[in-house]
Amino acid sequence: MTDATHPSVAETRAARRVTLRHIADSAFLIIVIYLVMAVVYVAVQPSALSAYSIESLFNNSLPLMLAAAGATFVILQGGFDLSVAGTISLVNVVIATTPMEGPGGALALLALAVALGMAVGAINGIIVAYLRIQAIAATLATMIICQGIALLILKAPGGMVSDFMVYELTASLTDRVPYALVIAALGVVFWTIYSRTDAGRNLLAVGQDRKAAALSGINVQRTEFFSFVWAGAFYALAAYMLAAQTSTGNPSAGEPFLLLTFAAVALGGTAFGGGRGGVTASLFGAATLMLMQKVLFAMGVSSFYTGVIQGMIMITAVLFSAAVHHAASNRRGA
């Protein structure tokens, strides 16, 4: 055999390193976890495959998936955004108190919702990126303010969500594929493209090394700012789908999202501190979190104790993803 057909030790090592790194960097792991869990679910509960139960599973999961997708933008650049709870509450009540019927109305509401979400995001972005206030503290404040505004708009749960949103958006395409799944898939497509544009690449670069990114000519402040704006847009989408799914408005609709969103992002393997991970991973992280509840319920675990397992899985997921990443980057120059 000649040398050309016989890869050197270094080359094999390089090849393995690439594979490991791809696994560490992509949404691969969480997708596998999700599929395994789905198989378990179907095994425990065969009725899970019915069109109705698939539809309801995705309808239930979508708001959290979108919220986690939004939070990922901020976390990737090394920031933090607690305003997710407030933004969702605010957008949710705005939708429920702005009656607009039909597909046209739904579209107008969507535009309104996204504009509102982006406005909140822009405020966060200004405070954090330009006024240089620590993200956790600043978004804690804006979250509280948004919740207050939501209470001003709607004192108690109520309001109206148009029939079109409630019935059509939560249905399935040709009665087979839930629209919720289509929207999630669009999210994946969006991120696949966005992460390859300069804006997406800059997001990851800033998260990896702020100083180096700045010295490379990246406008770090603008990158930070837009991460909050994108986040706001996705929170608004989450609120929009939440309104469609619950068919009412609730001034505290966003509260359950606060911790779950970060749990989903962590489960997806996006590093807190930035630079590693992605929106696709978070979408699957959130879906896994929601599916897990169903699986635990189907397996007969008392609902009291689902939290124990959720918490354990979160910690394990973070440890596991860190370990894989460590293994991937440790191969270099060994």
């Binding site: 990896q208 100083k211 010295l215 990246i218 406008n219 630079g275």
Partner: peptide, 17 residues
């Protein structure tokens, strides 16, 4: 203090931003 992003390729670093 080198201003390269560790987790990007040489090509991407050369062309940033």
């Amino acid at each position: 203090e080198l201003s390269l992003i560790p987790h990007l390729s040489v090509a991407e670093n050369l062309l940033l931003p």
